[in-house]
Amino acid sequence: MHLILWRIKMSNDNLFSKAEIKYLIKNKDIVIGSFGLAAIILAAMNYGILYLIPGIILTIAALGMRGYKIYKIYERNKKIERTRIKYNFKKIKTMDGYQFEKFVADSLKLIGYKTELTKKSGDFGIDVIAKIENKVIGIQVKHYKGKVGYDAVKEVHSGGKIYKCNEYWVVISNNHGFTRQAKIGAEKLNIKLYDIDDFAYLLDFK
Rank of each mutant, 00 (worst) to 15 (best):
H2N: 14
H2L: 13
L3V: 11
I8C: 10
K9R: 11
K9A: 15
N12G: 15
N12C: 11
N14K: 10
N14L: 12
L15R: 08
L15C: 12
F16T: 03
F16N: 03
E20R: 08
E20G: 06
I21R: 02
Y23M: 09
Y23T: 11
K26W: 01
K26E: 12
K28W: 04
K28F: 12
K28N: 14
V31Q: 02
I32S: 03
I32R: 03
S34K: 07
S34M: 12
G36R: 01
L37C: 12
I40T: 06
I41Y: 10
I41G: 06
A43C: 12
M45A: 15
N46I: 08
Y47H: 12
L50R: 09
Y51Q: 06
I53C: 08
I53G: 08
I57L: 15
I57K: 07
T59W: 04
I60L: 15
A61Q: 07
G64K: 13
M65A: 15
G67I: 07
Y68F: 14
Y68R: 13
Y68K: 13
Y71V: 10
I73C: 08
Y74T: 06
E75N: 13
R76W: 01
N77L: 13
K78A: 15
K79H: 05
K79P: 00
E81H: 09
E81D: 13
R84N: 09
N88Q: 09
K90F: 08
K90Q: 10
K90T: 10
K91I: 12
K91V: 13
K93S: 15
K93T: 09
M95Y: 10
G97A: 13
F100I: 06
F100M: 07
E101M: 08
D106E: 14
Y113M: 05
E116H: 04
T118F: 05
T118M: 07
D123Q: 05
F124W: 01
G125M: 02
D127N: 12
V128T: 03
I129T: 03
I137H: 01
Q140V: 06
V141L: 07
K142A: 04
H143Y: 04
H143F: 07
K145N: 13
K147E: 11
Y150T: 08
V153S: 03
E155Y: 02
H157S: 14
S158H: 04
G160W: 00
K161D: 07
K161P: 00
K161H: 06
K164E: 11
K164G: 11
K164Y: 06
E167G: 13
E167V: 11
W169P: 00
V170Q: 02
V171E: 01
I172T: 11
S173W: 00
N174D: 04
F178I: 03
F178A: 05
Q181F: 07
I184K: 10
I184P: 00
E187P: 00
K188P: 00
L189H: 04
L189W: 00
N190P: 00
I191F: 06
K192Q: 11
L193D: 03
Y194M: 13
D198H: 05
F199W: 02
A200H: 01
Y201L: 15
Y201E: 10
L202M: 12
L203G: 06
L203C: 10
L203P: 01
K206C: 10
